[in-house]
Amino acid sequence: MTAMSRRITTEGRISAKEVAHVARLARLRLTDEELERFAEQLGAVLEHARDVEQLDTAGVPPTAHPLPLVNVLRDDAVVPCLDRDEVLAQAPEVEDDRFRVPRILGEAP
């Protein structure tokens, strides 16, 4: 996202190819027509970001979160967990009390 936002602010628009890349990363299958449509819609969003960028924000600290809150913390106290049978009942497949998943094609990144 960060890399992309940099690209956006310099070019001001987003290509169908970039939409296809983001869609692939999100495991979304889009038709060519959808790619064009989303490129246009996302372009409008980025256009707006460009407008905002025109504002003089020198001396304004970056906003990390819209809520005026910091340090929302909880105590390190154990609470009851879910019942395993209930958890595994949601799984498509179960083996040895674990979630069974199809063959994994590569090591974790």
């Binding site: 909880r74 390190d76 106290a77 154990v78 609470v79 967990c81 879910l82 395993r84 009390d97 674990r98």
Partner: peptide, 26 residues
């Protein structure tokens, strides 16, 4: 810690599989 980073499930090694889970960590 006694619990996980973002939920109150036990943080301990060697428990029975999938017994220390909740909606947050799942």
């Amino acid at each position: 810690t006694a619990t996980k980073l973002f939920c109150g499930c036990r943080n301990s090694f060697g428990e029975e599989p999938n017994t220390s889970v909740c909606p947050v960590c799942l």
